[in-house]
């Protein structure tokens, strides 16, 4: 494979954990809840996914375990933020710290162990195309994730369920007045976000880099939170953002391909720096932000 093909193929794989986590957070925020614990839920999912896959040799069980771990941690958040009406920023940070700690605790015995990389699935015809062919030779989770993005877009914008979620996020009082159980819907959204973040972590630790290293999530959960803002709470734009960051995280390879020698630390900083710049560019359009921001985001609601 040429280096260009490698970059093309790698971009989608690198985008996958970001996209999984960001799509989950999209649903959570659309329902009016701000869960900043993504980094912790991803880290916990990564550790549980790795340990389960290592012991059972079943990636499916690994993903299931990671999803359950993500849900469990998100329920701690829900208890504080929804049940006890605690400050959502603080509650998110709390489970973030807890998740990171649990992740290293659980992963510790398997430090530096590796897993077999899963096989790739080439889509007939498409994978044989010149230049862009490598885009269609991915592991199965990549296809599923991008497919899920379409499903989530359709559900949010063209289904009754989507309408209910959005109603709860935009105006919980009105939503309750017409008979929706606001807290129950928010709880379900938070659980969904937890499952997605857990699986995003499992993808990172068992498929993308199938090796356990403490701290492997390395800010990806926070980038996923930022992606939801970049995407101004729309699934399509979040996919675009995730692919852009997938490409950025391969900055080292791209620089190598272009024949530029740059310090590795500069390349490692690139996704973070671009996050800051993009955040400023997109947020500076205050009118657009006001139009798209979920109205009740982060505000506690007394059930």
């Amino acid at each position: 494979m040429t280096i260009l093909a490698f970059i093309l193929a790698g971009t989608l794989a690198a985008a996958t954990p970001l996209l999984l986590a960001a799509l989950g957070e999209l649903i959570v925020e659309r329902a009016g809840v701000l869960n900043l614990g993504l980094e912790g839920m991803m880290a916990l999912g990564a550790a549980v996914g790795f340990v389960v896959t290592y012991n059972t040799h079943s990636p499916v069980l690994g993903f299931a375990g990671a999803a359950l771990a993500g849900i469990a941690l998100s329920m701690v958040f829900a208890t504080l933020a929804l049940g006890f009406m605690a400050n959502q920023v603080a509650a998110g940070l709390a489970i973030g710290v807890l998740g990171l700690g649990l992740s290293s605790l659980i992963g510790k015995p398997l430090e530096s162990q590796t897993l077999d990389a899963p096989g790739k699935l080439a889509i007939p015809v498409l994978a044989d195309l010149p230049v862009i062919g490598p885009l269609f030779e991915q592991d199965v989770v990549v296809y599923l994730t991008f497919g899920l993005a379409v499903v989530i877009w359709a559900v949010l914008n063209h289904s009754k369920l989507g309408l209910i979620i959005r109603a709860v996020g935009e105006n919980p009082h009105a939503a309750r007045a017409i008979g929706f159980r606001v807290l129950r819907i928010r709880l379900a959204a938070v659980a969904f976000g937890g499952a997605m973040a857990g699986m995003a972590g499992a993808y990172a630790s068992t498929i993308y880099t199938p090796l356990w290293a403490d701290g492997m999530i390395a800010g990806r959960g926070w980038i996923a939170v930022a992606l939801v803002v970049f995407g101004t709470w729309a699934a399509g734009r979040i996919v675009f953002g995730a692919v852009l960051f997938g490409a950025l995280s391969l900055g080292g390879l791209i620089a190598q391909a272009a024949g530029v020698a740059l310090p590795s630390q500069l390349l490692a900083s690139l996704p973070y720096a671009v996050t800051i710049v993009m955040l400023a560019v997109i947020s500076s359009n205050r009118r657009r932000m006001r139009l798209n921001t979920v109205a009740s985001l982060g505000q506690p609601f007394a059930g």
Binding site: V225, A226, V229, T275, I276, L279
Partner: peptide, 8 residues
């Protein structure tokens, strides 16, 4: 620029 200080 109205950029969220938590993320920045």
């Amino acid at each position: 620029f109205n950029a969220n200080e938590i993320l920045v």
